[in-house]
Design a protein around this nucleic acid. Sequence first.
RNA 1: GCCCCCGUAGCUCAGUGGAUAGAGCAGCGGUUUCCUAAACCGCGUGCGCAUGUUCGAUUCAUGCCGGGGGCACCA
Length: 499
Amino acid sequence: MNTAVDRLEARVSDAVGAPVELERPGDPEHGDLATNIALRRAKELGKQPRELAAELAERMAGVEGVESVDIAGPGFLNLRLADSFFVEAAAEVDERYGSGSDGERVQVELVSANPTGPLTVASARNGAYGDAVARLFALAGDNVEREYYYNDSGAQMDRFRASVDAVRRGEAPPEDGYHGAYIEQLAALKGDPVPLMLTEIETSLERFRIHVDNWAKQSQLELRLGEYLPRLDTYEKDGALWAASSKYGDDDDRVLLRSEDRSPTYRAADVVYLADKLDRGFDRAIYVLGADHHGTRNWYAAVARMLGYDPDRVEVLLYQLVHLTRGGEQTKMSKRRGDVVFLDDFIDEVGVDAARWYLVNRGPDQTIEIDVDLAAEKSQKNPVYYVQYAHARIAAILRNAGDAQVGGDPPGPLVGEEKDLIKRLLEFPPTVREAAARRGPQLVPAYAIRLADDYHRFYHECRVLGDDAQAFRLSLCRATQVVIARCLDLVGVEAPERM
RNA sequence: GCCCCCGUAGCUCAGUGGAUAGAGCAGCGGUUUCCUAAACCGCGUGCGCAUGUUCGAUUCAUGCCGGGGGCACCA
């Protein structure tokens, strides 16, 4: 999408005769937008930065929308912009603001926890992160599908079924089986516990606002192993069949068929699954994996390469683990122990909105530490409510405004709070663009806080209803509301009309 | 031993080359006859250490120190 800043950049670039990028300086004293082009290009042009800056400033001064150009520091060019620029920029914020038209088919495989128990908070991070990335891709104009892959045929599943069966017979689950209250609950129901567990998982995910478009199961993929094994670079060793994946960029070779009974490993199913994904026509297949899987991060692209696919179509996103503390004590996240925190319990305590916000708020490379008690207790002070409150406040004003006119030119010069708010709105498209490119959805909540901040300040300083500038200010409210709602949606948080 | 991630304010963390490094929480003080006070305003000698690259490094490179995770014919 072409924004007012894009168009201004184009005009400035045109006037200067070279591409110029405009950025918002950290200090408002440094103008509305600034560029470091003189510093970047002084050397190659054989000039002093400030001397070059002076030349460029002269050419930029006449550009439409530019009120003044100052040279500052070592050679920064600081632009002050005309009110007409801000008004134009604010007017173009609509539902599609920040969206793109990339048009790629993207698959995000997320969560993919084996259905041997309810989803834990670790899986919740996988889902929250993967889903947020998927939403960013969708905004960028990609066609996104979310998929959940599960193992329904391995040794762990046998142990899981055996555990439920044992309880049904009135016995304790085997030592190496699964324990816990949920096993008892499954035992009370009839039939194979695996689909029962999957239904529960899907229910949890829907509650967590993650919709899985497609479910893939290992047992079905394994059936097609025969088609793909011959296409791989393999060798026999110690009675097992190995993939020579290290020759294709993987860290190690991997066993495909076990020596014991020639049964396929999880990695073997991976091969079929990867080929299946790419054959389904996805331009990009994204795996969202916990940091404990980092040892296999190069495996997927290696398989793609081995099978003759473009390895760039495969992407692995790693995220660090979640540590929950409860009363200062750290709890472990193993499903086999009783002290795990399930997603549903976590949601019960802190709510979906805070849960998703907390899990997306941090960069994927950062280990998240959440004190569950604190998150629940202090939920009123969670930044997510600060942002939601700004949305609800705007909704109230728009309700009170009834069908009053929205939009039009302001009656006088813009005040600082109005300009600051518009400048923030202008940052939205590049922010989501960068968040998508970096697979870093944490930029969105960080931005949303700043936007809410600017709105609350604007609200505090500028009367909307009944003021001469009512129509214009209502348009600022509307624009802000649209962008806040979009930010919250990208994180998977609701945008309330009332609080 | 090898691989990955992290080290920024008392705490939890944003900030992937720019000009005076930010937010929330915690602490102290102020603001409401007015559209939602879940708000606003004020108060802070912080980028683990060292070299290097650069006009410019919290950001990039290398080394070191410290913390976490991983190195299965489990998934």
